[in-house]
C-alpha cells in the first residue's frame, strides 16, 4: 500500500531535492576532494594577491619620465638603487623597524598580565569587564583612536589642562616618536591579548598548583612553568604585532606630526604625492620582503606558535 504523502514532510522532500542537486554537481566519487574544494576561496584570494604582487613587481622595475609622466617600457633597477641609497628611505626603514621591535616587546609585556587575569580570574564580572574593555577599541577604529589621543594629549588637551592646574606649563606630548610608539602599543594591545589568551587557556591550572606544592613560589612557577608553556601564544602575538606595527600608516601620520614617517607613509608619498608608482611599488616590495624575513626568522627561532594550530615546536 502506498504511504500517504503527508507521512513524508515537505522539509524532508526539500532536503532530498537539495541532496540530489548536490550529488549531481559534486558526485560521491569526488568526496575525497571536498576538503580541497573548501580551500578554493582562500586559494583564489591568495592567488589574486600574488597576481597583484606580480603587477607591483613589474611596476617596480619601471622608471618615471617626468616630462611625460609615463613609465618606461624597459626594465631597470634604478628604483631599487634609489630605495637603497636615498637617505630618506633608510631613515624611515630604520625608524619603522626599531618601532616595530619596541612596540612588540612593550605590547607583549602589557598584554600578558591582562590575558592571564582574563583567563584565570574566578570572577565572571571581572572577566566580562576585561573582555568588554578588550573589544571596545575594535569598534572605534584606529584613526578615531589616534585622533582621540590628539584631543587628550594636545596642547589644550585634558592632560595639559590637568598639569596646568598644578602650575605646569603646557608641554608637547604628541607629534614625536614616543607618541607614535605609545599610539601603536595602545592599538596593538587587544590583538596581543587575543592571541595570548588561547595559549594561556591551554595551560592546565594543575601544573601551576603542582609547582606550588613542590615548593616553587609564584615567580619560579611563572618563569619555569607558565612562560615556557605560553610560548606559542607569545610567538603568535609577537608576529601579529610585529608585522602590523612595521606596516602601519595611520598612527605615524596622525601622532607623528609629519616628521615621524614609517615605510608605509613613504610608499603613500610615492604613489599619491610624486606620482612615482614605480618607486612606490619597489618600496612596497621591499617592505613585504622585510616583513617576510622577520616572520621567517621568528618561526625559525621559536616555531610558529599558536599560528601553527597546535603543531608548534616546543
Amino acid at each position: 500500500m502506498r504511504a500517504a504523502r503527508t507521512a513524508y514532510p515537505l522539509t524532508w522532500r526539500i532536503m532530498d531535492a537539495l541532496e540530489g542537486v548536490a550529488a549531481a554537481i559534486w558526485p560521491a566519487r569526488f568526496r575525497r576532494a571536498t576538503p580541497y574544494l573548501m580551500l578554493l576561496p582562500a586559494v583564489l584570494l591568495v592567488g589574486l594577491l600574488v597576481l597583484g604582487l606580480i603587477q607591483i613587481a613589474d611596476a617596480s622595475l619601471r622608471t618615471l619620465d617626468t616630462t611625460t609622466f609615463q613609465f618606461s617600457d624597459d626594465y631597470s633597477i634604478a628604483n631599487f638603487r634609489r630605495a637603497l641609497t636615498e637617505p630618506l628611505f633608510l631613515v624611515v626603514a630604520q625608524r619603522s623597524l626599531v618601532a616595530a621591535l619596541i612596540v612588540t616587546a612593550v605590547t607583549l609585556v602589557f598584554a600578558f598580565p591582562y590575558a592571564y587575569l582574563m583567563v584565570r580570574t574566578r570572577s565572571p564580572g571581572l572577566r566580562k569587564f576585561l573582555l568588554i574593555a578588550l573589544f571596545l577599541p575594535f569598534f572605534i577604529g584606529q584613526v578615531v583612536r589616534a585622533y582621540g589621543w590628539l584631543i587628550i594629549l594636545g596642547n589644550q588637551g585634558m592632560v595639559n589642562e590637568a598639569l596646568g592646574l598644578v602650575g605646569v606649563a603646557p608641554m608637547r606630548l604628541i607629534y614625536n616618536y614616543p607618541a607614535v610608539l605609545f599610539g601603536l602599543v595602545q592599538y596593538m594591545l587587544p590583538f596581543a591579548v587575543l592571541m595570548l589568551a588561547p595559549a594561556l587557556t591551554a595551560i592546565p591550572e594543575e601544573l601551576e598548583a603542582a609547582a606550588g606544592s613542590l615548593g616553587a613560589n609564584w615567580v619560579r612557577t611563572f618563569i619555569h612553568v607558565v612562560l615556557p608553556l605560553a610560548r606559542p601564544g607569545f610567538v603568535g602575538a609577537g608576529v601579529v604585532v610585529l608585522t602590523l606595527s612595521l606596516t602601519d600608516f595611520a598612527v605615524p601620520a596622525i601622532l607623528g606630526g609629519g616628521s615621524q614617517d614609517f615605510i608605509a607613509n613613504a610608499i603613500y608619498d610615492q604613489f599619491f604625492r610624486t606620482s612615482d608608482q614605480g618607486l612606490g611599488a619597489m618600496l612596497a616590495l621591499m617592505l613585504v620582503a622585510l616583513g617576510s624575513i622577520l616572520v621567517g626568522l621568528v618561526f625559525a627561532l621559536f616555531g610558529a606558535g599558536t599560528l601553527a594550530m597546535g603543531r608548534s615546536r616546543t
Partner: peptide
C-alpha cells in the same frame, strides 16, 4: 615645478625626517 617636484619633495623630506 612638475619636472623637479619629486626630487624637491624627497630632499625636503630627507632633511625633515632625518
Amino acid at each position: 615645478q612638475v619636472e623637479n617636484e619629486s626630487e624637491w619633495f624627497s630632499k625636503f623630506k630627507a632633511i625633515m625626517q632625518g
